[in-house]
């Protein structure tokens, strides 16, 4: 089984000028203890990128550009890592990994994690909701719903779509004998 949803562009990291991957074993330490690694990793990816967007003191646009790229990379990477940590199959052997590839005019994030059959069904239901609704209306609906419940599920993807103009795509496969999802997020820079 190999199913693709959304805008899942085939991108190999070697197509980019620079790329970086980080991988984690989902069950190595308790979730609460691992949570801080999401922030550390996201900050690292965002900070690393700033090298390629140097600030020039006589050009305010370069200062803004660096801040915008760093902010977007950190936000998106953090959301992908948080999702992977919350919704991955802790009993499986698939590592959670994130890859950030810098292309000429785009940043490409690729997050891979193992999922249980139930998590896969829930995820596909959410993707179906995304694909069959206006993202802006769905975003406002989810914000309203957040007042009624303790769930903020799906808001990360909706902010990427609405506030960061990202394109999102997913690939589900079980070629390794375990269910796996690859999430790809692309933003223009």
């Amino acid at each position: 089984m190999n199913e693709v949803f959304g805008e899942f562009e085939e991108i190999r990291p070697e197509q980019g000028t620079e790329h970086m991957s980080l991988a984690f074993k989902p069950s190595s330490v308790p979730l609460k203890q691992r949570w801080r690694n999401n922030g550390l990793s996201a900050d690292f990816l965002g900070d690393y990128l700033t090298t390629f967007f140097p600030k020039k003191s006589d050009d305010p646009k370069t200062v803004k550009k660096q801040a915008v790229v760093r902010d977007a990379a950190t936000y998106i990477a953090n959301e992908l890592l948080e999702n992977a940590m919350k919704y991955s199959n802790e009993d499986g052997n698939i590592l959670n990994s994130i890859n950030l590839t810098l292309m000429e005019d785009r940043l490409v994030f690729t997050e891979i994690n193992g999922i249980t059959k139930q998590q896969e069904m829930d995820f596909k239901a959410f993707i179906d909701e995304l694909e069959n609704n206006d993202p802006d209306e769905l975003f406002m609906k989810k914000l309203e719903e957040s007042a009624m419940s303790d769930s903020s599920s799906g808001l990360g993807y909706l902010t990427m779509l609405n506030d960061y103009q990202a394109t999102l795509g997913w690939q589900f496969d079980d070629a390794s004998g375990e269910h796996k999802v690859t999430t790809r997020v692309v933003i223009s820079i």
Binding site: T74, Y75, E79, A147, L155, T159
Partner: peptide, 17 residues
């Protein structure tokens, strides 16, 4: 400097109240 999506949900919840 930074707010994750759960934090955005928290602020939304507050604004609605």
């Amino acid at each position: 400097d930074f707010l994750n999506s759960s934090g955005i949900a928290m602020l939304s919840k507050f604004v609605i109240s």
